[in-house]
Design a protein around this nucleic acid. Structure first.
Length: 225
DNA sequence: GCGACAG
DNA sequence: ATCTTGTCGC
C-alpha cells in the first residue's frame, strides 16, 4: 500500500472498491486502546443543496460526557452519495475537522457503519484506520446483512449477519423507536462497542457523542435554539 | 435478471 | 443527507 494510494480520495468506483478490500484486511477487531478520557463524536452534514460538505467533531469527557470542545470544517462536496462508498465522500472533510482538535480522543463514535459493510470497510472503519484510533460505527439504518426482530427492552440487541458472519448488532437504544446498527470500526470488539454505546446513551435514541455531532453537522443547534 | 442500498 | 407543519407525548 503506497502513501499515494492511501491519500487519493478521487478514485473511480472500481478503484475505490479494490482499495476497500485491501484496507479491510488491516482492521483490528479486538480491543486495543488506552484508558478513555475523551470520546469524540463525528458526523457530516451538507449546506447549499449539498454543494458544501460540513464535518463536525465533538469531544466529550469520560466519564461525565461533558462536551469540552467542538470543531467544524466546511469544504466543497467532492462526490455524490454512492451506497458502499460513503467514506470517499465524507472522510476527507472529517479528517480536516479532526485536525482542528486540540485534544486527541481515545475513542471515536462515527455516524455510519463500521465493518457492517459489503466489503467490511464502512466509514467508521475507514476513518479508524486513518486516525489510527479505536472507532465504533453507530448507524441509524441498515446497509447490508439481516437480523431477527429486535427485543423491545432498552439495551437489548440481536446480531446482524451477512454471508454467515456476525458483522454487528441491532440495538434497541430507546423503546418504541427504530433500533441502532452498531458495528466495530477499528481496534475494538463488537462486545466492547456495544458496552460503550449503551454507556453513552442519554434519554435519546443516539448516544451523546453522535447526537451532539449530528446536531452540529446539520446546524440543528443554531436553527432551533 | 430483479431488488436493496450507511449518509 | 435535505426539504418541511403540525402534532402527539413525557
Amino acid at each position: 500500500m503506497t502513501a499515494a494510494a492511501l491519500h487519493d480520495w478521487n478514485l473511480t468506483p472500481d478503484e475505490a472498491i479494490a482499495l476497500q478490500k485491501r484496507l479491510a484486511g488491516r482492521i483490528e477487531r479486538e480491543d486495543r486502546f488506552d484508558p478513555v478520557r475523551h470520546i469524540a463524536g463525528v458526523d457530516i452534514g451538507f449546506e447549499q443543496g449539498g454543494e458544501i460538505t460540513r464535518a463536525a467533531v465533538v469531544l466529550l469527557t469520560w466519564p461525565g460526557l461533558t462536551p469540552v470542545e467542538q470543531v467544524v470544517h466546511r469544504e466543497p462536496t467532492r462526490m455524490p452519495y454512492v451506497p458502499g462508498l460513503l467514506s470517499f465522500r465524507e472522510i476527507p472533510a472529517a479528517l480536516a475537522a479532526f485536525a482542528l482538535l486540540t485534544t486527541r480522543p481515545e475513542l471515536v463514535m462515527v455516524d455510519g457503519q463500521g465493518i457492517a459493510h459489503p466489503r467490511r470497510l464502512g466509514v467508521a472503519s475507514h476513518l479508524g484506520l486513518w486516525l489510527d484510533l479505536p472507532t465504533i460505527g453507530v448507524a441509524k439504518s441498515r446497509l447490508c446483512g439481516s437480523h431477527d426482530a429486535v427485543p423491545e427492552g432498552r439495551g437489548e440487541w440481536t446480531p446482524l449477519r451477512h454471508r454467515g458472519e456476525i458483522i454487528g448488532a441491532v440495538l434497541r437504544s430507546r423503546l418504541a423507536v427504530k433500533p441502532l446498527y452498531v458495528s466495530l470500526g477499528h481496534r475494538i470488539s463488537l462486545a466492547t462497542s456495544l458496552e460503550w454505546v449503551v454507556s453513552c446513551l442519554g434519554r435519546t435514541k443516539l448516544p451523546e457523542p453522535t447526537r451532539l455531532a449530528d446536531r452540529l453537522a446539520s446546524r440543528r443547534d443554531e436553527k432551533r435554539p
